[in-house]
Design a protein around this nucleic acid. Structure first.
Lengths: 358, 358
DNA sequence: TGGTTTTACTAAATCGTCTTACTAAATCGT
DNA sequence: ACGATTTAGTAAGACGATTTAGTAAAACCA
């Protein structure tokens, strides 16, 4: 075995490497090395207007010393002093359900741009975990909370932005899809293909969108003169984030006798489960039954048959949510009236829908 | 509409609710309210052995005051004083690729259990972003770093655990799959079905597992007396996290003339793309070509045909990684020799593989 | 009774940064 | 030449918690 040399930092590019920093050096250290006071070093490094009177030569010395000592201000100390953590908390139902991840990617992008980081906490649709996690996040001094598909019942002293939330609470900003339009797109598409008998798989009780989705679909259907029978409405049950729930819901639906020619699934995940159930029962999609999903997750395009779906701009909803949250944090008084930001859906036509042949 | 009563805090359980807390109250406030010193309050609330001499009655008063004032210790101040942030940084390639999300869910579970939170930063496979993000995380005073499918080249003064990493660096713990076994399972399965001509879709250069995966597959094949021709090896190109890359790689493979009877795909995502490409070229899976994926993401089971795949216990790898990272944080000197923790794969047989019929 | 120990606390320092309120010397204006 | 201003800094908190090192009073021991 070679002698342990690795411990020494590789200074190839002139910078001290991360590895060679057993003891963090502080403002005081930098000041001491220059025989200046911490005050002076601080104002110069922070470009404070107070540094106006410091001659350039001194400033240069300070910057140089900070660089060569590899000084990095301690975030914790700074947070304590400034009462700003530049951190927000994100509440999600589930990390691995695709939906949250897509939204999160938008959130992350925007936040990093603005120098913020975020803590994630997932609650698996359990009310008490939502409460507990919120508490933890507040305890961690987050400056705001972003709730993704998570019900918010209480007003908070922190700014909150809710994505796909439908609660109207003072100070809460909601980022929502234009559900009317989404329903209209879906129904119109099926209508134009000749479908008049449409079944609906509604979401679980705990999903924020469940109620609006069903309501707007029924309304849009009515506008096209289509009445959706109660008997053709089924519901996802349980918190399994896999297509299994959609599969079961569809089997249930089929057990009532198949009269419908199309299914509006609550989302793509359940649409995928539905297709499997149909196939097992000898129905082909789209030849015997058309099916339309919701969300346009990545899997939708590459499923077989590729899913016709209503796309929600999930990533954009995430970045919009982050953007508004940061705005609300800036103007600190939480006196804003409940605000709603609407994003538009798109109909993505693929292979899971086709003309009715009777 | 009913009158808006909801805004007032619900004090049903006697606690002040989050909403009614405009000004945070500090240890000093609690102390003042009791005419005691902050010291006393602190030692009592922290169950410090120093509180042994404090009579129970005083302790009770302190707890009661803390509760009724809804005192929550300021995490930032505490972190500064104790030099502990109970926060770790997680490096991932991409939020929305399914793989990272699955691992993250395991990470989260373990960390929350232990009172830790985590910051996520994604680098989209760009070396300079890995470096920059690491820097940011260190700047945020994380106590350790968990790298998911992210190459780590430098030793750090912080403990690092790498999931699916293959770098051997002092102080770095790797959580890896038993790749030999995985390859053996895959090859053996195909062999038993009669396949002798096997094509391989290897991963992108930037994926940590690309190299081992190919190497172990070739080796395992050889052990079964199967030689995999160079001409049957194709590669995923580009950082699109969708099945598109697998689709393209398979088209490329087919353009060279189809002689193989099975494909080993780099992962489930690319297997899904491969199936589409095959279908478009008139080949049915599994009747004309068998295909085997890797990872067993949720989509695998519900794809049509359902994917035969090598399952990686992603969530478990996440929680194992978190667990070891926390351990390494506890025993602070980073003198541990590079350590490897191996997890075992499973062969999940579904419908994308079948016996050869020639 | 006088010294030691125990009880019940508290003062002050510290973590690292930023900010408010100075000071001493140099320069300016007239 | 003398007060006013500018230049070039510094000292002393404060942010909110923890910890070390005390201190008075009470209790104990011989």
């Amino acid at each position: 075995m070679p002698a342990k040399k690795e411990n020494k930092a590789r200074n190839s590019n002139g910078n001290l490497m991360e590895s060679s920093q057993p003891k963090n050096i502080s403002l005081k250290d930098v000041a001491a090395s220059l025989k200046l006071s911490p005050t002076t070093v601080s104002v110069v490094l922070n470009y404070s207007p107070l540094a106006d009177s410091i001659p350039q030569e001194t400033k240069d010395r300070i910057f140089e010393a900070a660089r060569s000592l590899n000084y990095r201000p301690n975030y914790i100390a700074r947070s304590l002093r400034n009462q700003r953590t530049h951190t927000i908390g994100v509440l999600i139902p589930e990390m691995s359900d695709g939906y949250s991840a897509a939204v999160l990617s938008g959130v992350e992008e925007k936040l990093l741009q603005e120098g913020y980081f975020y803590f994630v906490a997932s609650h698996h649709h359990r009310e008490e975990l939502i409460e507990k996690n919120t508490h933890f996040l507040v305890g961690r001094c987050v400056e705001g909370i972003l709730a993704i598909d998570t019900p918010i019942h209480q007003q908070s002293f922190l700014p909150i932005v809710s994505i796909s939330g439908h609660d109207h609470i003072k100070g809460l900003t909601n980022i929502v899809l234009n559900h009317e339009r989404a329903a209209q797109l879906a129904i119109e598409h099926l209508y134009q293909l000749g479908h008049r008998k449409i079944a609906v798989i509604k979401g679980q009780e705990f999903s924020s969108d469940t109620e609006v989705r069903l309501k707007t679909m029924l309304k849009a259907a009515l506008e096209f003169g289509i009445a959706i029978e109660d008997n053709w409405i089924t519901q996802l049950i349980g918190d399994d984030p896999s297509p299994e729930t959609g599969y079961l819901a569809t089997k249930e639906l089929l057990s009532r006798g198949k009269k419908f020619t199309a299914i509006l699934a609550f989302n793509d995940i359940s649409a995928i489960g539905a297709i499997r159930a149909l196939r097992e029962n000898g129905f082909e999609v789209p030849n015997n039954v058309s099916i339309i999903g919701f969300d346009d997750i990545i899997a939708a395009e590459f499923h077989y048959p590729a899913l016709t779906t209503i796309r929600q701009p999930l990533k954009k909803m995430g970045s919009l949510g982050a953007e508004h949250l940061l705005q609300n944090i800036q103007k600190n008084p939480v006196d804003t009236i409940s605000l709603e930001i609407t994003v538009e859906p798109d109909l993505i036509i693929r292979q899971s829908t086709a003309k009715v042949i009777e």
